[in-house]
Design a protein around this nucleic acid. Structure first.
Length: 367
DNA sequence: AAAGCGGGGGC
DNA sequence: GCCCCAGCTTT
């Protein structure tokens, strides 16, 4: 394959670059919980959590997760409900469902040992090009690239690469660059150093070039174009969905919840009954009709909504009108729905938007 | 190649 | 408000 944009590699003193980068990393690296050992399982968990998620967000989740599921075996044998609960609020929930699927595969097919070849590890559910390289280099010391958003940003500046990093095909260019730059003696520190540099120094906006340990190797800095790199085209507009949701409670202190479908958005998480509003009629009427048809319940909701909640996803926005209603307890006909005690709601995994709904409803119940 | 998939923080 | 974040899977 031909990489015309990598001619700048010839200008880089690779040995010196490795030394400057790794020395800085050894001196400045943050004390993070997944850096306490090289247990492949814990490296794996951390890398999945860190996908599209900041370090500060991940730290408490990681500590709780490895406390509850300390080994491959423990996670493989856990209930999915418990695993989702441990992931609650972290987002991209398919990550953890794929992780459990993959861990069970490791237990059954690899004797409980995380495989150490690119082919085997890449075949595991949820392990893509980045994660396989990260686990191989960090846990096993294999000199494989681990190219994430940080690395593309850093390398695009160092080598002055103007490819659009939003394109899937661009990743291979950066992998090839890293393959030539990576330290064979310490690929773990090298890969983590690139990401640490991207997080601490070579940031998306206003990079701290004057503090950069590899400034002397950086083409973008010498040309004064570090602010213009990387090139990244932007995404499309997002969709709005208008929902009506209701918290239905009995005098005995039960509330109605339901489980979302096993695929798609927020798969297998719990939520309060809700329906997409058509705009024909008012939300209260549409919701009451929905309860009659889907649950076989005659609900009289409060006339006014108790909250309007907007929740922004990466690809769509929910505008939720929240209602509250009291009802006599009676059997429900809808599948995957059930009455639960108010005090037990917290044992189920909800998306953040429905956690907000529950919080608001409890305030309403008190008043 | 493009779309679907969460949630939070920085500016 | 927009952009980004230690990306992967499905279509």
């Amino acid at each position: 394959m031909n990489f015309p944009s990598l001619k700048s590699l010839q200008d880089v003193n690779i040995e010196q670059f490795q030394h400057d980068l790794i020395s800085w990393y050894q001196e400045e690296k943050r004390d993070l919980p997944w850096r306490k050992d090289q247990d492949p399982y814990k490296v794996w968990v951390s890398e999945i959590m860190l996908q599209q998620t900041r370090v500060d967000t991940v730290i408490p989740y990681f500590n709780n997760f490895v406390d509850k599921f300390p080994t491959i075996e423990a996670l493989a044998d856990a209930e999915e409900e418990a695993v989702l609960k441990a992931w609650e609020g972290l987002g991209y929930y398919s990550r953890v469902r794929n992780l459990q699927t993959a861990v069970r595969e490791v237990k059954d097919q690899y004797g409980g040992k995380v495989p150490d070849t690119k082919e085997e590890i890449s075949s595991l559910k949820g392990v893509g090009p980045y994660t396989s390289g990260a686990i191989l280099s960090i846990a096993y010391g294999v000199p494989e690239p681990a190219v994430d958003g940080n690395v593309m940003r850093v390398i695009s500046r160092i080598l002055s690469i103007w490819e659009d990093i939003a394109k899937a095909s661009s990743r291979k260019i950066f992998e090839e660059a890293v393959r030539q730059l990576i330290s064979k003696e310490d690929p773990s520190s090298f890969n983590q150093a690139l990401m640490e540099l991207g997080a601490l120094i070579c940031t998306p906006t206003s990079p701290s070039c004057l503090l950069c340990p590899v400034r002397d190797h950086c083409h973008a800095f010498h040309e004064g174009v570090q602010q213009e790199l990387p090139v990244k085209t932007k995404k499309k507009n997002m969709r709005h969905v208008h929902l009506g949701a209701a918290v239905i409670a009995t005098d005995e202190g039960d509330v109605l919840i339901q489980k979302r479908p096993e695929s798609g958005l927020l798969a297998n998480l719990w939520e309060f009954p809700n329906v997409e509003l058509s705009g024909a009629g008012n939300p209260k009427m549409e919701l009451e009709l929905f309860f009659r048809k889907e649950y076989g319940l005659d609900v009289e909701l409060q006339a006014e909504s108790i909250a309007k909640i907007q929740h922004v996803f990466s690809h769509l926005t929910w505008d939720i009108d929240v209602y509250y209603g009291k009802i006599k307890k009676s059997p429900v006909t809808k599948e995957k729905s059930q009455w639960v005690k108010k005090g037990e709601v917290e044992h189920f995994a909800f998306s953040v938007s429905h956690q907000k709904i529950w919080q608001r409803a409890q305030e309403e119940a008190k008043s």
